[in-house]
């Protein structure tokens, strides 16, 4: 059933006309051209499709288009502001947390969401916070390093919220 769905995407209002049952990940990638949100499993097992829905990390591969209505959606393309990398992105680059990069957008989204809730985490808390995001390349260690580093940056910058 085609329907007009309005929501805020990376700070700007958008309206898409699409089937209500389509997956949010397909709307983002195919209709809106935001291919930074990846699909790795299609069943909520890998976290590659993570997006922020009203600041909360959710999995766009098991969300329907209808659920986007009225929400504030942030994808990897909207994490940084004014052309600057988000501190989490900066830390990922600096700490070597990126290999093939296919898990990276979802991992960054998960880390951004996690640090909003827990601005001063231990390594073990970071591990738990990212445990729904599968990375097959890195062995996670440098990703944990990066999130630890980003947490310090965000606290130091006074922009922890």
């Amino acid at each position: 059933m085609k329907r007009k769905i309005s929501f805020t995407l990376n700070g700007s209002p958008v309206v898409v006309e699409t089937d209500a049952a389509r997956r949010a990940v397909d709307v983002l990638r195919e209709d809106l051209g935001l291919t930074g949100t990846k699909e790795g499993c299609g069943s909520g097992e890998c976290g590659a499709c993570s997006i922020l829905v009203d600041d909360v990390v959710k999995l766009s591969c098991i969300m329907t288009a209808a659920q986007l209505e009225g929400r504030r959606i942030v994808t990897i393309e909207g994490v940084g502001q004014d052309g600057e990398l988000h501190p989490v992105q900066r830390s990922f680059v600096e700490r070597g947390a990126i290999q093939c990069g296919f898990c990276t957008p979802g991992m960054v989204i998960a880390a951004v969401g996690f640090l909003k809730e827990n601005p001063d985490p231990t390594r073990e808390e970071i591990r738990a916070g990212l445990s729904g995001n599968i990375c097959r390349c890195t062995g996670y260690e440098k990703i944990i390093d990066a999130v630890e580093d980003a947490a310090a940056k965000l606290r130091g910058g006074g922009s922890g919220g």
């Binding site: 909520g44 990390v57 959710k58 098991i62 998960a110 969401g113 916070g129 445990s131 729904g132």
Partner: peptide, 9 residues
Amino acid sequence: VGAPAVRNM
């Protein structure tokens, strides 16, 4: 249960 995103949903 699962991991954070699963618990968020």
